[in-house]
Simulated scan of single mutants.
Amino acid sequence: MSRRTRRALAALCLAAWVTGCGGPREPAVSLSPDDTLKAAQVLLTDRCLTRQGLTPPRPGGPPASTAVDHALFGTGRAELTLELPSGHVVGQHTDGCLAAAERRLYGDQRRWFRAVTLVNNLKSRAPREERAAYRELRAHGLTEARALLSASYNHH
C-alpha cells in the first residue's frame, strides 16, 4: 500500500473517530479512484483474514506468517494463468482472501485477471476488447468499492 493510501486511510479513520457514530456522514477525506479500490480491497481482505482468526499484515509490521500468506493469496497451483507475448506466464489463485475480494469488487475474477494483466503489462498495445473490459470492470469495481466503504463508514 502506498504512503498516500496509508495517509488517506489514517485520515478516514481519524475522521470517523473524531465525528463519532451519530449517524450517516460523508467521509471528510476524498480518495482517488485507485485509493478507493485499494481501500475496499484492504477492508475485504482484512475481514476475510479476521474471520479465519488471522491478523491482517500491515506495512512496517511483522512479516506475515505462512498461514496468513496462504489465507490471503491462496495455495497450490495458480488456477488462472495467462502467457504474455514476451513468453512470461502470469498466474493467480482463485482461492484466498484476495481472490474473494476481487470477485466481490469486479464480479468476474477470471475476466478481471485477464483484462488487468494485459492492460498493466501491454499498456496501449493491449487488445482493444481487453482495454474495454478493463474499463468496464474497473468502473463496476469502483461503484462496489464506494458502496462498501460508505456502508462500512456509516456503520462505525
Rank of each mutant, 00 (worst) to 15 (best):
S152I: 00
T36S: 14
L12F: 08
D95H: 05
A28S: 09
C13S: 11
A132G: 05
A101G: 02
V90H: 14
L142D: 12
R104G: 00
S150Y: 09
A78C: 10
D95R: 03
K38G: 01
E129I: 11
C48Q: 00
E83S: 10
A100R: 04
R138L: 10
A8Y: 07
Q41F: 13
H93C: 08
L149K: 12
L44S: 03
Q52G: 00
P127R: 04
T50N: 07
G141L: 09
A40E: 00
A99T: 02
F113H: 13
G76S: 03
R58M: 15
S65P: 02
Q52V: 02
S2M: 13
S152R: 09
L82C: 02
G60M: 14
H155E: 12
M1S: 10
D46V: 01
L43F: 15
P56R: 07
R3D: 12
S2W: 15
L9G: 05
W17R: 08
T81I: 05
V42P: 00
S150I: 08
T5E: 13
P56C: 10
R6W: 15
R4C: 10
L12D: 01
V89N: 07
S124D: 14
E79Y: 06
L37K: 02
L84D: 04
D69Y: 11
R103P: 01
G74V: 03
R131V: 09
T36W: 15
T94L: 14
T81S: 10
H93R: 14
Y106L: 08
E130Y: 12
R146P: 06
P85G: 03
C21S: 12
R138S: 07
P57T: 06
T5P: 01
L43I: 01
G87L: 10
A71R: 01
T19E: 15
G23E: 09
L49R: 00
C21L: 14
S65R: 09
E144Y: 05
R7H: 14
R7L: 15
R125F: 14
L31A: 04
R111P: 02
T94S: 07
R138P: 01
L118H: 03
R7T: 13
L137C: 06
C21Q: 11
P85Q: 05
T55M: 13
K123V: 14
L142V: 07
C21V: 10
R114F: 15
P59R: 12
S32Y: 09
A132H: 09
